[in-house]
Structure formats: structure tokens, C-alpha cells
Amino acid sequence: MKAYLFLALAIASELFGTSMLKASAGFSKLYPSIGTIVGFGVAFYSLSLALNQIPLGVAYAIWSGVGTAVTAVIGIVIWKETASVTTVAGLALIIAGVVILNLKGAAHG
């Protein structure tokens, strides 16, 4: 269970780092640039701790899938990026994939 808390922290930190990356305007703004470095540093460290107990394929699929889906939502809500039917369908497929991987993982261990 502790490993999944590290994975959640990795996801949250990656989301923060990615948001700061957008705000950094190509690393031309100091504080968002620092936020990017800190966010990704914490994300990778937390992911490495999660990998002590969660299989690599499952952890990475959850990390990247949830990160991608929530990043797209952040882009739409915060950065006012446009969403299409294709975007929503893609996000739904990502979420379905993460759920399926977790069901498989729960059934096998």
C-alpha cells in the first residue's frame, strides 16, 4: 500500500512539474523553471521508491496514463486549451487501460 502512496506522489509531482513547465515559458521565468526541476525530481524519486514493490510495467502504465489524462484536463481547465471528441475518447481509453491493468494486477498478486 505504501508503494501506491509513493506512486500517487510521483504522479502529483509530475503534474506539478509539467504545469510549471508550461508556465516557465521555455525556462525564461525563474520560479516556474525551479518548480519544473523540483516537480520532476520529486516525481522520479517517488517513482523509484514505488518500483520497489510495484512491477515496472504496472507502475509506469499508471504513472504515465494518469499523468497524461490529468495533464490534458489541466490543459483544458487552466490553460484554456481546446478539447474535441477525439480528446475525450482518447482520455477515456487511457483511463480504461489503467483500470484494466489494475484489475489484472489485483487478480495476479
Rank of each mutant, 00 (worst) to 15 (best):
M1N: 13
K2P: 08
Y4N: 07
Y4I: 07
Y4G: 08
L5S: 11
F6N: 01
L7K: 09
L7H: 12
A8G: 08
A8H: 07
A8M: 10
L9D: 00
L9R: 00
A10H: 04
A10E: 02
I11T: 03
E14I: 04
L15T: 05
L15H: 02
F16K: 10
T18Y: 03
L21R: 10
L21P: 09
S24M: 03
S24A: 09
S24Y: 03
A25P: 12
A25F: 13
A25Y: 13
A25Q: 14
G26D: 03
G26N: 06
F27V: 06
S28I: 05
K29Q: 15
K29E: 15
L30D: 12
L30M: 15
Y31E: 15
P32S: 02
S33M: 05
S33L: 03
S33N: 05
S33V: 02
I37P: 03
I37A: 11
G39E: 07
F40E: 03
F40N: 01
F40M: 01
G41P: 09
V42P: 01
Y45I: 07
S46C: 04
S48I: 00
S48Y: 01
S48R: 02
L49V: 10
L49P: 04
A50P: 08
A50L: 05
A50N: 06
L51M: 13
N52L: 14
N52Y: 12
Q53P: 09
I54M: 04
L56D: 02
L56S: 10
G57Q: 02
G57N: 01
V58Q: 01
V58S: 02
Y60H: 02
Y60V: 08
A61N: 02
W63I: 00
W63F: 07
W63R: 00
W63E: 00
S64G: 05
S64V: 05
G65W: 00
G65P: 01
G65C: 04
G67V: 05
G67C: 03
G67T: 01
A69H: 03
T71V: 10
A72S: 14
A72P: 08
A72H: 12
V73L: 11
I74D: 07
G75T: 05
G75D: 06
I76P: 10
I76R: 14
V77D: 13
I78Q: 15
I78F: 15
I78V: 15
W79L: 12
W79D: 12
W79S: 11
E81R: 06
A83T: 15
S84L: 15
S84T: 15
T86V: 14
T86F: 15
T87S: 08
T87F: 11
T87R: 01
G90A: 07
L91Q: 06
A92R: 12
L93P: 02
G97K: 08
V98R: 10
V99I: 14
L101W: 04
N102V: 06
N102I: 05
K104H: 12
A107P: 08
A107H: 11
H108I: 14
G109S: 13
